[in-house]
C-alpha cells in the first residue's frame, strides 16, 4: 500500500470523526468507529479501486462501523436523560391545542440553503440535541435506516421512537429559529 494512500486517509480522519461524533454522541465510541474504518480501509486498499471518491468510500465504511458501535452499546445509547422530559409541546401550544405564537415565516428555502453559514448553525444545533434523540434522529437522517430498522437495532418500541423523533425535530426547529432565523430577519422580511 502506498504512503500516499495512508496520508490521504489521515487527512480525512478529522472529518470522519466529526460525523461519528454527531451520530454517536460519545467520544470513545466515535474514535473506535473511526479507527475501525481506517483499519478496514488500510487492510484492503484495492477495494477502493478509485471508482468513487475516497471520502464517499470511507463514509460508506464508517456508516457500518457506526451501526456496529450503536449495536454494541445500545443499552447506553438509548438511555433517556432528564432533559428529554421537557415538554416542548407545552411551550408551543396552549391547553386548548392552539399555537401560542404564529410560527415564523422562514422565507424561500432556496435562499436559505445557499448559505453555508446556515449549515454551520444547523450542525451546532445537531450537536446540542439530547444524545438519545440525536442518535435516533441521525440514524433516520444520516444512516437512512427505516423506522423499523432503528427500532430493531436499538430495541425500542415504535411509540418510543416517534416520541424521540418528534422531540428531536421540534428542538432542531427551535434551535434554527433562534440560531439562524431570528438573527437573519432580512432573509425572511419579503
Amino acid at each position: 500500500m502506498s504512503n500516499d494512500f495512508a496520508s490521504q486517509l489521515e487527512k480525512l480522519q478529522p472529518q470522519l470523526l466529526r460525523f461519528a461524533r454527531t451520530q454517536l454522541r460519545n467520544e470513545a465510541w466515535a474514535e473506535d468507529a473511526v479507527s475501525e474504518t481506517l483499519v478496514a480501509a488500510l487492510e484492503k486498499p484495492h477495494a477502493f479501486a478509485g471508482q468513487s471518491q475516497l471520502k464517499t468510500w470511507l463514509v460508506g465504511i464508517l456508516k457500518h462501523k457506526v451501526i456496529d458501535q450503536l449495536r454494541r452499546h445500545k443499552r447506553e445509547a438509548t438511555i433517556l436523560t432528564a432533559d428529554d422530559n421537557e415538554d416542548l409541546d407545552e411551550l408551543l401550544f396552549a391547553p386548548d391545542g392552539h399555537w401560542r405564537e404564529m410560527p415564523a415565516d422562514w422565507g424561500n428555502p432556496d435562499d436559505v440553503l445557499r448559505q453555508r453559514q446556515f449549515f454551520v448553525v444547523m450542525e451546532a444545533c445537531l450537536e446540542v440535541l439530547p444524545p438519545t434523540q440525536a442518535r435516533v434522529f441521525m440514524m433516520r437522517e444520516w444512516l437512512e435506516l427505516t423506522s423499523d430498522e432503528v427500532c430493531k437495532e436499538m430495541t425500542i418500541t415504535t411509540t418510543n421512537l416517534w416520541v424521540l423523533l418528534h422531540r428531536a425535530r421540534l428542538r432542531l426547529r427551535e434551535c434554527l429559529q433562534s440560531g439562524w432565523f431570528d438573527a437573519h430577519p432580512e432573509a425572511t422580511a419579503k
Binding site: K55, M122, W142, L172
Partner: peptide, 15 residues
C-alpha cells in the same frame, strides 16, 4: 426546509 437541509448536509458529508 429542515428536510431539504438535512438531505443537503448529508450529501456534502459524503463527497
Amino acid at each position: 426546509l429542515m428536510n431539504r437541509a438535512m438531505a443537503q448536509w448529508k450529501s456534502y458529508s459524503e463527497t
